[in-house]
Design a protein around this nucleic acid. Structure first.
Length: 435
DNA sequence: TCTGGGGTCCTAGGACCC
DNA sequence: TCTGGGGTCCTAGGACCC
């Protein structure tokens, strides 16, 4: 047995909204989220017929829709199944309302929103103000969210965040009685070590599971009883973290929730068809680049590196022997469209050799706070200042009147996707929450 | 699984410097 | 123009999560 005395022994809740998008849509229609078969399906031009974003519990059970993200072709034809388009902005509003309820139970600094449907609460200091047991407090929070918003929540309880996460994924989500699950250092061996489906454990996906299998590790028990130095040797830092995970210890981890600052901002898209002409590819790169630049300016950030990823069509990939290419370029910190797009196009022109393109990815890294404009010595200073003013004005107009009110003339012709995608949130329909 | 989108972190290897 | 070793920066690529 390990010595856990130096590890944190707090009370952490990881709370997730059950089938979030589907539940919000049920509530909005006056339907019971636990009794209605409903799926949320995005039908953007590039989703190849349709992408199922969320599935209500009954739709999962009665229509055999297990995995959350699947295709329209997997959808059974049935009159009883509600199929509705996404309204991303509505889900964002609902998530904010749920987090406001959580703030009645913890101080703002102890509440960490983790994703659009999950939050972590460090309730160590305050749980005893609300009930006799932590389970009691979990039930109260569930009741408050359900009474006020109609959404059922699921609560994982642990002595540190990773225990709460595993308790949520492995137990609370399968507990139809009160939708809670709990793990502690003491119960970890009994509850976690028997697991042999390694990919069911957070942070282990198929590649890592296969790697572990090659090392003859087929259960969490095996993992906990493997020499950590051998794991480190074989898998690097990730190996050490897996060993800690097997013992319920929370150490810095790749996707650790307690991450404060954004290290990069990115946008990507799968194009609706193969693009072959340099002009139309560059147009979309420009559009995505400006979208990222606009997000930087909105947060008052600058970036010191830009990345461009280009994915080839399947045919081109086969011919080329690579799936695509990506390149990065260090630049002087900036958030202007012109400088960011120029860097992206430079990467593109340096690497592209007439392949057909299906996928584009743009990200900005090395993010710092916007501390005034860095003027280039080469261009006239007034031109540079005017450029910045123009872009701020464009941002302002788009913010007030909608993106489509002001677009480049070029976006109206061959290949541009900006107008089509202007109202999307995360690539899906934003819905009318703001309209 | 013939292409969803937005993120985070780690590592290997090359370039360059002293 | 024969050469070691340590450090840093940068890029490409891999892996995972929601």
């Amino acid at each position: 047995m390990l010595d856990y005395s130096g590890e944190p022994h707090g009370v952490f809740f990881l709370i997730d909204s059950k089938s979030f998008y589907a539940s919000v849509e049920c509530v909005a229609r006056g339907l019971d989220p636990l009794k209605t078969p409903l799926v949320v399906m995005s039908e953007q031009e590039n989703t190849n017929g349709g992408l199922i974003l969320a599935t209500s519990p009954v739709a999962k059970k009665e229509f055999g829709l297990q995995s959350n993200v699947s295709r329209q072709r997997d959808l059974p034809q049935s009159e009883d199944l509600f199929v509705v388009p996404p309204r991303m902005n509505l889900y964002i509003q609902c998530n904010l309302a749920i987090n406001r309820i959580f703030q009645r139970y913890v101080a703002p600094e102890d509440l960490w929103p983790y994703s659009i449907d999950e939050s972590i609460l460090d309730i160590t200091k305050s749980w005893h103000l609300f009930g006799q047991t932590t389970l009691d407090v979990a039930h109260q929070i569930q009741k408050a969210v359900h009474d006020e918003l109609g959404i059922w929540t699921t609560v994982g309880i642990g002595q540190n965040p990773v225990q709460a996460k595993l308790a949520l994924d492995l137990f609370a989500k399968h507990n139809d009685v009160d939708r809670t699950g709990r793990l502690t250092y003491a119960t970890f061996p009994d509850k976690i070590w028997p697991i042999t489906d390694m990919t069911s454990v957070w942070s282990i996906a198929d590649r890592t599971a296969a790697h572990l299998a090659r090392m003859n590790i087929h259960s969490m028990y095996d993992l906990a009883h493997t020499n950590p130095y051998a794991l480190r040797q074989e898998m690097g830092l990730a190996g050490e973290q897996l060993f800690a995970l097997a013992w319920g210890i929370d150490r810095a981890h790749p996707a650790a929730p307690v991450r404060v600052h954004n290290r990069s901002i990115s946008n990507s898209q799968v194009l609706p068809r193969d693009y072959k002409m340099p002009d139309e590819i560059e147009l979309v790169i420009k559009e995505i680049g400006e979208q990222v630049a606009s997000r930087l300016r909105h947060h008052h950030y600058q970036c010191g590196v830009v990345n461009l990823g280009v994915g080839f069509s399947y045919a081109s990939a086969e011919e080329d022997g690579r799936g695509g290419f990506h390149g990065a370029l260090r630049i002087d910190p900036t958030n202007t469209n012109t400088e960011i797009v120029a860097a992206l196009l430079q990467i593109f022109r340096r690497n592209w050799e007439n392949q057909a393109v299906r996928n584009l990815y743009v990200s900005c890294g090395r993010i710092t706070h916007d501390s005034g404009q860095q003027l280039s010595l080469l261009d006239s200073i007034t031109t540079q200042v005017k450029n910045v003013d123009l872009e701020r004005t464009v941002d302002e107009i788009r913010h007030r009147f909608g993106f489509t009110k002001l677009v480049y003339a070029a976006s109206k012709v061959h290949g541009g996707t900006a107008i089509e995608r202007a109202s999307l949130v995360g690539g899906h329909n934003g819905g009318n929450a703001y309209d």
